[in-house]
């Protein structure tokens, strides 16, 4: 007690106990500087450019029929694509981790192709495939389904580029699952399905949500692969990033940034919501 009292008197301002982990100050500094340079300053530029518009002008631009349709298309299809990827990416990850089959390693490598392939190449390849005279397109045409140059084509492209995100986030979690958990569930009388829904799935949900969020974010911002297959008809198959490009080519920079700002805010809110959901499910699985 006496020791502490004298210490306190001599150095009254050193109340904060230093953390045992070194480098807090410097890492925080570097992180913030980097974040500012790479993310915040460009975003601030976006808002500044938009600020040259009056609010009425801004509102007129972002609520124009063409812009609203583009937003609807971009966000709606991105959500649908992310949901599809959530289901099938989850299944692909499950199959790759849980089963041994010939060609497993090859399949594992193929999953990364949408990551690595230039998006324009992907777009052209998908368009060729799904065009009315293409391999798949000609078959689908018999059933009366048109894919290329329709919103359905956009969906196909978005599913294609989003798949690896779900697979790659879920895979390590499945690999880490303890086989004993399933064994103990079986001894307690759980069926395979009960073991899956009550034991495995709850532990994988946070990773599934992360994959979902990444696939969604990627899809919202996707440009290269979509414009080839979309047909790009205003109000029908024109995505928001393309509308931004068109406004830029018309030298209407403020119009372009206004649309961008709306996309930015909407994406941020959606990702924030997913993030909250993820934290909640992680708390529930006792990982934090």
């Amino acid at each position: 007690m006496k020791y502490r009292a004298t210490m306190g008197a001599a150095r009254p301002r050193l109340r904060r106990r230093p953390s045992v982990l070194p480098g807090f100050g410097i890492t925080l500094g570097v992180t913030l500087t980097w974040l500012a340079l790479i993310v915040l300053i460009p975003l601030a530029g976006l808002f500044l450019q938009t600020a040259t518009l009056s609010f009425a002008e801004f509102w007129a631009i972002v609520t124009s029929r063409r812009a609203l349709n583009a937003f609807k298309l971009s966000f709606g299809l991105s959500l649908v694509a992310a949901v599809i990827n959530l289901v099938f990416g989850g299944l692909v990850a499950w199959a790759l981790v849980r089963y041994q089959f010939p060609g497993r390693r090859l399949l594992d490598a193929i999953v990364d192709i949408p990551f690595a392939l230039p998006t324009a190449v992907a777009g052209i390849a998908l368009t060729t495939l799904f065009a009315e005279n293409g391999w798949l397109g000609s078959v689908l045409a018999l059933a009366g389904i048109k894919v290329a140059f329709t919103p359905l084509g956009i969906l196909v492209a978005l599913v294609f580029i989003g798949l690896p995100f779900v697979v790659r986030t879920v895979q390590p979690v499945l690999l880490d699952l303890d086989a004993e958990l399933e064994e103990v569930a079986a001894t307690l009388g759980a069926s395979r399905w009960q073991t899956f829904t009550r034991v495995i799935l709850p532990l994988v949900v946070p990773a599934l949500l992360t994959g979902f969020a990444l696939a969604f974010a990627r899809a919202v911002g996707e440009y290269g692969s979509v414009i080839f297959i979309a047909g790009n008809l205003p109000n029908v198959s024109e995505i928001a990033p393309l509308l931004i490009m068109i406004r830029l080519e018309e030298f209407k920079y403020a119009d372009a940034t206004a649309i961008a700002v709306v996309m930015l805010i909407a994406s941020f809110l959606i990702l924030l919501a997913i993030n909250r959901l993820q934290r909640w499910s992680e708390l529930r699985t006792g990982r934090l």
Partner: peptide, 20 residues
Amino acid sequence: RSVRERNVGFVFQHYALFRH
């Protein structure tokens, strides 16, 4: 009989509790 049907209680060394 499968594990499910044997009605045995099994305790693992590392507990294997359901953490969620």
